[in-house]
C-alpha cells in the first residue's frame, strides 16, 4: 500500500478550483518529484495535502487514513512535514530554537533527533546559537529542512528547495534529500530544476492546468520525448 495516495483531488482558495483531479501515490521508499509549468498547481498540491487550503473533492489518504482538510497540528504528529518555499525559517530565533519548533508536537525527548540533524548538516551544529536571519540562503534552507525533520516525519514535503540557491548549493541540497530518503523518509517535492531533480526521482509527476499530464519514474519521464519537449525545455 502506498504511504500517501491522492485520488482526483479538487482544491482551491474559495474561487475556481486550482487542482482539478490530481492523482498521486508515493511509497515509503520513494522520492516523488512534481514538475510542470507555472500555475500548474504544483505548490497547491503540497498545500492541499497539508491542510493549508480547502480540498473540495477527491480523497487524500495517508497510511490508509483520510487526511483531507486536517490542519497541520494534526498532520505533523501523524508523520507529515512540510518545508515552504519562502519564509521557511524563524529569522529572529537561533538555529537550535528553529529546530526545537520543528519538534513542538513531540512530547518525548528529541535530543537524539537533533544530533541526527546536526550530523546531516554539520555546518548548523557550529552555528546553533546564531540567529537564523544572519545565515546564508543555503544555510537557511538547511535550517528549514532540519526543522521539518525534527518531528521524525515519514513523509517530507519540500516546495522548491533549490529556489534561489547557487548551483553548488543546489547539488548539496539534492544530495541531502537523497540521504534523508536513504534513512527511510519518503520525499515529495516540487522542483523548477526539473531535469536535475527527475534524475534521482523514483516517481515523477508532470502537472499542467491542475491535472496530471504524465506519470512515471524519473528516468521514464526524462526519456519521454514529449515530456522533454513540452516541460523540460527541449
Amino acid at each position: 500500500m502506498a504511504l500517501i495516495e491522492l485520488k482526483h483531488v479538487v482544491a482551491g482558495y474559495g474561487g475556481a478550483p486550482i487542482l482539478n483531479g490530481v492523482n498521486m501515490a508515493i511509497d515509503q521508499s520513494d522520492i516523488g518529484v512534481v514538475v510542470g509549468p507555472n500555475g500548474a498547481g504544483k505548490s497547491t498540491t503540497l498545500k492541499a495535502i497539508f491542510g493549508l487550503l480547502k480540498v473540495t473533492g477527491g480523497t487524500i489518504e495517508f497510511d490508509g487514513e483520510e487526511i483531507a482538510n486536517s490542519l497541520p497540528d494534526r498532520l505533523v504528529p501523524k508523520g507529515l512535514s512540510f518545508v515552504p518555499q519562502e519564509k521557511n525559517v524563524f529569522t529572529s530565533m537561533s538555529v537550535e530554537e528553529n529546530l526545537e519548533m520543528g519538534a513542538f508536537t513531540r512530547r518525548d525527548s528529541f535530543a537524539d533527533t537533533m544530533e541526527w540533524v546536526y550530523q546531516m548538516f554539520p555546518v548548523l551544529a557550529e552555528k546553533r546559537r546564531q540567529p537564523t536571519g544572519e545565515l546564508s540562503g543555503g544555510q537557511r534552507q538547511m535550517v528549514a529542512m532540519g526543522r521539518a525533520l525534527m518531528s521524525k516525519p515519514r513523509l517530507l514535503m519540500l516546495d522548491e528547495p533549490s529556489a534561489g540557491l547557487s548551483p553548488r548549493y543546489v547539488i548539496e541540497i539534492f544530495e541531502t534529500i537523497v540521504r534523508v530518503n536513504a534513512e527511510g523518509v519518503a520525499i515529495l517535492m516540487v522542483e523548477q530544476n526539473a531535469r536535475q531533480a527527475l534524475a534521482f526521482a523514483s516517481k515523477g509527476f508532470v502537472l499542467a492546468g491542475g491535472q496530471n499530464r504524465f506519470t512515471g519514474t524519473g528516468a521514464e519521464l526524462i526519456a519521454d520525448p514529449e515530456v522533454a519537449k513540452s516541460f523540460l525545455g527541449g
Binding site: 497539508f50 493549508l52 497541520p72 515552504p84 525559517v89 529572529s92 513542538f104
Partner: peptide, 11 residues
C-alpha cells in the same frame, strides 16, 4: 516571527 511557518510546524 512567522505565523504561517508556526502553523506549518504543527504549533
Amino acid at each position: 516571527d512567522n505565523a504561517d511557518l508556526a502553523q506549518v510546524s504543527g504549533i
